[in-house]
Design a protein around this nucleic acid. Structure first.
Length: 278
DNA sequence: GTCGATGTTATCAA
DNA sequence: TTTGATAACATCGA
């Protein structure tokens, strides 16, 4: 479940081991993880040098010379690591990319929801999933953030998960941010006060920044580019903590379903009428 | 052995 | 327009 902090951690790790290296070999072990795969995929990559590694929302973007870009989405269980070629190739590894310094990039995904796309650089911004994506929460002003929620009736948790509203939040950080902001996840967005929106904005930025500093949350599969787990799961306050005491008030955390997703919250700290408080 | 839950997103139906 | 269900898939625990 790599969300913004996990993908950011991977991207930072990747930069150190791929920038300036060229692709010397490509092995596709499972074609169906390469979106729009053609037999030219391997050939198209070979000989090209990595110039830049970027993150946009939960997407990894690897820019190569010759006007080429590789977009990777890890969805739920994807891993993107930089290895030594002699390391054991774990089950569910679908793509190997050899680099000119002897390193080897590996894409592994148990459930195969994730994917890799190769596009021409000038078509990158036209990829639908990138073109429609909302702003980066760590790069926008409060006003940019707030105006995306005002006047919308949908419940706030569902909106936070919508990548077209704000990029990069997933189930973990949506739940954690709402708890920090003291907002019930089912609150319709248009019922949030300005104070609520302000607090939510700060909470989102705070939880994402802290999670990046702790190299992400490792719940099931997530590892960074070097294969190491993150530590922010040790600081979760509500996510997957049903029945455990709220760190603020001691009330047992509850779990409900919102927008089809498991949702964790403190019934005392996150009242539905949050907008009327304070 | 079966069933449900897991979490992301595109797609389709209402 | 919006919302909700479903499918893609493997694994784990009850």
């Amino acid at each position: 479940m790599p969300e913004l902090p996990e993908v950011e951690t991977i991207v930072r790790g990747l930069r150190a081991c791929v920038i300036g290296r060229s692709v010397t070999g490509v092995q596709v072990l499972r074609q169906d993880v390469i979106r729009g795969y053609t037999p030219e995929f391997e050939e198209a990559l070979i000989g090209h040098k990595v110039e830049e590694v970027l993150r946009r929302g939960k997407n990894i973007i690897i820019k190569l010379d010759g006007g080429l870009a590789m977009v990777v989405h890890l969805k739920m269980t994807g891993q993107f690591t930089c290895n030594r070629p002699e390391e054991e190739i774990l089950k569910h590894t679908h793509l190997l990319i050899n680099l000119s310094d002897g390193g080897q990039l590996r894409f592994r995904d148990v459930r195969r929801f994730g994917y890799v796309i190769l596009v021409k650089l000038d078509l990158l911004t036209e990829l639908p999933q990138l073109a429609a994506m909302g702003p980066e929460p760590l790069e926008i002003t409060f006003e940019d953030f707030a105006c995306r929620f005002r006047g919308r009736r949908q419940c706030i948790k569902a909106m936070l998960l919508n990548q077209r509203v704000v990029a990069g939040l997933g189930n973990i950080y949506a739940d954690e941010a709402l708890h920090r902001a003291g907002i019930h996840p089912e609150t319709p967005a248009d019922q949030l006060s300005e104070h609520n929106l302000r607090h939510l904005f700060e909470a989102v930025r705070e939880v994402l920044s802290e999670a990046i500093a702790r190299r992400g949350s490792s719940i099931e599969n997530y590892v960074d580019a070097g294969g190491a787990a993150g530590t922010f799961q040790l600081y979760h306050r509500v996510y997957r903590k049903r029945g455990q005491p709220c760190p603020l008030c001691g009330t047992p955390i509850e779990r409900i379903t919102v927008g089809g997703r498991g949702t964790h919250f403190c019934p005392k700290c996150q009242k539905r009428s949050a907008g009327l408080q304070r």
